Simulated assay, not measured.
Amino acid sequence: MKITILATALTLWPFFASADVTISDGWARASILASRPAAAYLTLTSNQSDQLVAITTPIAGNVTIHAVETDNDGVSRMVEVDGLDLPSGEPVTLAPGSMHLMLMGLSEKLEEGTYLPLTMTFASGARMEVSLPVLGPGAMGPQEEQP
């Protein structure tokens, strides 16, 4: 299994590459209350076709992948996705207003300046642990956090 670490000395961002999957541009939005769901975003690029089939974290009872679908009347709603296909060499981006990770049953609220630990399991059997920085409650992405 090929392992490449893309971490800097000060942060874990752009995180890790393992099992031929690279995680980049990952972040989570701070939550207002632990009783409310939170969201996380990232880009996955796989060197071989694979599928993200499960995500866990010690601070949420359930992590699901949600897509956003818009009906013929222009009404959008979130729809849970069973697995996220990762075509070989094609980045798959989860971003605000689009596909995202939904964290439900939080045991604590996500605090700005902390990190969200995630364990991702792929159909190939590979597992990957990452830590996403938690940005402010109104953040729209890591580019806002740069000076």
Rank of each mutant, 00 (worst) to 15 (best):
V92R: 10
L116Y: 01
A19H: 15
D73W: 06
V92D: 07
S98W: 11
A95L: 09
F16L: 15
M120K: 00
P87C: 07
V134F: 06
I23D: 07
L132I: 08
I32W: 11
N47P: 05
A123R: 10
V92N: 08
V130H: 00
S31H: 08
G136F: 04
A38P: 07
D50P: 05
T22G: 06
S131M: 09
G89H: 01
V63L: 08
I5F: 03
L6M: 11
I55Q: 00
P147M: 09
E90W: 13
G113L: 07
P133Q: 02
M78F: 13
D85P: 04
A54N: 07
P142Q: 10
A139G: 06
E129A: 09
E144F: 12
M128K: 02
W13L: 14
G89W: 01
E145D: 13
P147A: 12
S124R: 07
E112D: 08
G74Q: 04
S46G: 10
G26M: 08
I3N: 11
D85N: 12
A34D: 12
L42V: 03
N72V: 08
E90C: 07
M120L: 15
I65L: 14
A17D: 10
Y115M: 08
I5K: 04
P147W: 00
L10S: 14
T93Y: 04
M99G: 02
E69N: 12
I55W: 07
T22P: 01
V53C: 11
A7S: 15
E111T: 13
I32M: 10
R36V: 11
D71N: 13
I23R: 00
P117M: 01
A123L: 10
D73E: 10
N47I: 00
D20S: 15
V68K: 10
G83V: 05
H100V: 05
V53T: 14
L103G: 00
G136M: 01
M140E: 14
I32P: 00
P14T: 02
Q143E: 15
A9M: 12
A34Q: 14
M99N: 07
L33W: 12
P91M: 13
L103Y: 01
T119P: 01
V53L: 05
H66K: 15
E129M: 01
R29L: 00
Q146N: 12
P142S: 09
A95N: 03
A54F: 02
T114N: 13
L110Y: 05
E129Y: 02
G141M: 10
N62L: 13
L42E: 02
G125N: 05
Y115G: 02
Q143L: 15
A30E: 09
S124Q: 01
Q48G: 02
L106T: 03
S35N: 12
T64F: 01
G74L: 00
L106N: 05
S88T: 04
I65H: 11
M120F: 06
V92Q: 09
E145T: 15
G141I: 09
H100F: 13
A7G: 06
S31Y: 04
T56K: 08
A30Q: 10
W13H: 10
A28P: 09
